[in-house]
Write a protein that binds this DNA or RNA. Structure first.
Lengths: 174, 174
DNA sequence: CGGAGAAACTTCAAGCTTAAAATTGTTTTT
DNA sequence: AAAAACAATTTTAAGCTTGAAGTTTCTCCG
């Protein structure tokens, strides 16, 4: 799923008009696009993970979890965190355990519904997160620095279209 | 690192000319772009994982490994696989163990250099992979179906620029 | 030749991730 | 007010991933 070998085949979409005449199921163009997308995100993600570990002895999931909590000063329900991060609930349980042990998070049971756990950043956790977030923004800025502002805008728009396409397909499948 | 909340702030690059006058380190635009990129690739990747599991009781790493081997009929050295997949060598060891047990892969020690392991798809492995690859191509095609061919082309180009930017940044940092 | 060093891989410890099963607690039906 | 259904989490088993440390096997220089 990684690699993006780029073996110089002309993409189909250069001549969309002849497309209907081609082999019935030629999915090469989409596959190449997907591979390139994945390569980009893998490159960035690995670098972010590496730096979080080196500079903060932390991990991306922990950073993400704290990022979700940052804009919820009154805390957030576990299930909501799980949905927003798009990971399984069991995953959150483990992350929260560790971040609570290390003093970054506080947790409390909702008195009116004792099934519900609410977590929030502690003052310490917030301070740590802010340090990490500032560096994180610098890293991303560096990695994207070679992209002209106009290209960034185009990419934003095209990715929005892709996202819509993917979500529509997932909805059809469900 | 996931989510892409889209809280409707006008991107910086809409007016690149005033950029120099803004706050010294406003990285919001890049962050938003990164988040959106990550959202797209996470959505696609999760769906592919889910279907590999449901339809083939397999996983993405296994599929990727077999994909690398597919175009190397004479087999490939472990280290080369590791580099192409951009994962750690120790990772490949484990994957190869399991795929060899299940009969998908054969492995052999190079006689002239007994440190080197060469792996290749077995006939069974190749047949299994071809089934998976065909379905995989269909899934991606579906997920990307809502993207017009012209948009696909633009996205290819813009992602190429982003990839260059990231690689350049990584090279600077090294 | 003989050892230093490099190369290819494996092992290890720790952490992330998921789906499915199990718990605990609440709500809705009879 | 049981019973059944539903909800929020946690637990469990299995697999992926990494960096670092360890092993085996070459290679090369003196």
């Amino acid at each position: 799923m990684t690699g993006d070998d780029e073996f110089a085949i002309a993409p189909d979409w250069l001549d969309g008009e002849t497309k209907a005449l081609e082999a019935p199921h030629d999915h090469r163009a989409e596959l190449r696009l997907w591979l390139r997308l994945l390569t980009c995100s893998t490159l960035v993600e690995s670098e972010v993970r590496r730096r979080l570990r080196e500079e903060f002895d932390s991990t991306l999931p922990r950073f993400d979890l704290m990022a979700q909590l940052e804009r919820a000063p009154d805390g957030m329900v576990l299930g909501e965190v799980s949905r927003r991060m798009m990971v399984s609930p069991g995953n959150i349980t483990v992350l929260v355990e560790r971040l609570t042990e290390s003093g970054h998070l506080s947790r409390a049971t909702l008195p009116t519904d004792r099934r519900v756990q609410i977590i929030a950043l502690t003052a310490f956790g917030r301070a740590e997160f802010e340090k990490m977030a500032a560096r994180h923004a610098d890293w991303i800025s560096d990695l994207f620095a070679g992209l002209a502002p106009a290209d960034g805008g185009v990419l934003m728009d095209e990715l929005a279209k892709l996202k819509r396409s993917v979500i529509a397909s997932l909805a059809r499948g469900a």
